[in-house]
C-alpha cells in the first residue's frame, strides 16, 4: 500500500510539473526554450514514478513495509500546524508576541511539564532571540500589521 502511495504521489507531482513546464512560452528564434530543463526533469520523474508503481505491483502480498507509528505522525502534523500558524502570525503580530506564545507550546510538545520553566520561556525566548538577531545582528524585525508588541513597548 505504501509503495503504491509513494508512486502515485510522485506521479502526481510529475504531472503537475509537466503541466507547469508546458505553460512556459516558446523560445524566440535562435534561443533555447526556457522550459526544456523543467520539462525533461518532470518527464524523467514521471518515468521514475512508473518504476516505483511497477515495484509496488511486484511486491509480494502482505509485505506492507515498515510498521507505522500513527501517534508520532499526528504529533508531527500538529507541530507542523503550529509552525504554520507561528510563521503566519509574524505578519499579524510581529516577532515578540507569537514567540512568547509558541515557545511554551513547543516546549510542552517536547515533554517539558514544569510550569515555572514554561513561564520563564514566555519571557526569555522572545527576549534572547530579539537581542541576538534584531539588536546585535541589526536585522529589521517583522512588523505586525494587526498589533506589534515591540512598537507598543517602545511607545
Amino acid at each position: 500500500m505504501r509503495a503504491y502511495a509513494e508512486g502515485l504521489v510522485l506521479a502526481l507531482i510529475s504531472i503537475v510539473a509537466i503541466w507547469g513546464a508546458w505553460q512556459v512560452p516558446a523560445a524566440s528564434p535562435g534561443d533555447t526554450w526556457a522550459g526544456i530543463v523543467p520539462f525533461s526533469a518532470s518527464i524523467a520523474l514521471l518515468f521514475l514514478s512508473g518504476l516505483l508503481l511497477l515495484g509496488a505491483v511486484r511486491q509480494p502480498a502482505g509485505d506492507t513495509g515498515q510498521e507505522q507509528d500513527n501517534g508520532a505522525t499526528l504529533q508531527i502534523i500538529g507541530l507542523f500546524i503550529i509552525a504554520l500558524i507561528y510563521q503566519q502570525s509574524f505578519r499579524w503580530f510581529g516577532y515578540l508576541l507569537p514567540t512568547a506564545i509558541a515557545a511554551p507550546v513547543v516546549l510542552y510538545f517536547f515533554g517539558v511539564r514544569s510550569w515555572i520553566g514554561l513561564a520563564v520561556a514566555v519571557v526569555l525566548c522572545p527576549l534572547i532571540f530579539h537581542l541576538i538577531f534584531f539588536v546585535l545582528l541589526g536585522v529589521y524585525p517583522p512588523y505586525g500589521e494587526v498589533f506589534d508588541l515591540l512598537s507598543w513597548i517602545q511607545g
Partner: peptide, 27 residues
C-alpha cells in the same frame, strides 16, 4: 529510484522563478 527522484525534485524546485536567460516565468 528514490535517490534519482529526490535529485529530480531538487532540480524542479530550483527551476521556480524567472529563467536566467530569457526571463520567462516558470512554476
Amino acid at each position: 529510484v528514490k535517490g534519482l527522484a529526490s535529485a529530480l525534485m531538487g532540480i524542479l524546485i530550483a527551476m521556480v522563478g524567472l529563467d536566467p536567460i530569457s526571463s520567462e516565468e516558470r512554476y
